[in-house]
Structures are given as C-alpha cells and as structure tokens.
Simulated assay, not measured.
Amino acid sequence: MIQVSNCPVAGLGDFDNKNHFSVYPNPAQSSITIGGTTKISAITIYNLTGQKVFETYYKHPISEIQLTLKDEWNGLYYLEIQDSDGRVFSIKLVIE
C-alpha cells in the first residue's frame, strides 16, 4: 500500500506563462512576436519528437522580438524562452 500526504501537486496554473511572456499570433504562419515582463536572453524551438529546430541567444537581453518562421515548419512545436534571470518558460506553438 502507498500512502501520500501533504504532497503538493502541480496544476496547470503552476505553469502559467501569462505573467511572463506573450507569443502572438498563435497559431502562426510566417512570424511571431515574443514579449514579456522580463527580458529575453534565449529562444529555442523543439518539434514534437524533441528535436531542436531553432536556437538563438542574445548577448544583450531584449524585451521583445519578432521571429521569422521557416516555410517548412508546420504543426505543433514547443517554444522555450529563457529570461535574463535564467528562468525557462515553455509555450506550445502552432505553425500553419
């Protein structure tokens, strides 16, 4: 028998990016804009198999960026945004 007590459970609200970054439009076609309350120091995009398809770093973190998407990218991706404090946020991105 397994007994669990006083164990915090992460819910969807625990991973809410609304207060940190916004990505629009989503679904996207040719470009996206990423902005937030903290500065962006790195952006990485992964496909559903976990393969890294894009990565960039900013020597001087910025508040907002417009990113041009490749024509062959279609489907669901995971966008990881690292802020200037080293925190990483993940957002689902649909590219049409």
Rank of each mutant, 00 (worst) to 15 (best):
M1I: 04
I2E: 03
I2L: 04
I2W: 02
I2Y: 05
Q3M: 05
V4Q: 07
N6F: 06
C7H: 07
C7G: 02
C7P: 00
C7N: 08
P8N: 10
P8I: 10
P8L: 08
V9C: 08
A10L: 14
A10V: 14
L12N: 12
G13L: 12
G13A: 12
G13H: 09
D14L: 09
D14K: 09
F15N: 14
F15G: 12
N17S: 11
N17A: 11
K18S: 15
N19Y: 12
H20K: 13
H20N: 14
H20L: 10
H20W: 09
V23Y: 04
V23W: 04
Y24F: 15
P25T: 12
N26D: 08
N26C: 03
P27T: 11
P27R: 12
A28P: 05
Q29T: 09
Q29V: 12
S30Q: 15
S30V: 10
S30W: 03
I32S: 01
I32C: 00
I32R: 00
I34T: 04
G36S: 11
G36D: 07
T37M: 09
T38N: 13
T38G: 10
K39H: 09
I40P: 09
I40L: 14
S41Y: 08
S41D: 14
S41P: 03
A42Q: 15
I43P: 02
I43R: 02
T44Y: 03
I45M: 11
I45Y: 01
I45F: 01
I45V: 15
Y46M: 04
N47W: 08
L48T: 10
L48I: 11
L48C: 06
Q51A: 13
Q51L: 11
Y57V: 14
Y57R: 15
Y58Q: 08
K59W: 00
S63R: 13
S63L: 12
E64M: 13
E64H: 10
I65K: 09
L67I: 13
L67N: 02
T68K: 12
T68D: 10
L69A: 07
L69P: 02
K70H: 13
D71W: 00
D71H: 11
E72D: 15
E72Q: 14
W73R: 01
W73Y: 06
N74F: 05
N74Y: 07
G75N: 09
G75D: 05
G75S: 09
L76P: 00
L76C: 07
Y78P: 00
Y78W: 03
Y78V: 03
E80A: 07
I81L: 06
I81R: 01
I81H: 01
D83L: 09
D85Q: 10
R87D: 06
V88A: 08
V88Y: 06
V88I: 14
V88E: 04
V88F: 07
S90D: 03
S90E: 02
L93R: 00
V94N: 04
I95S: 02
E96C: 02
E96V: 03
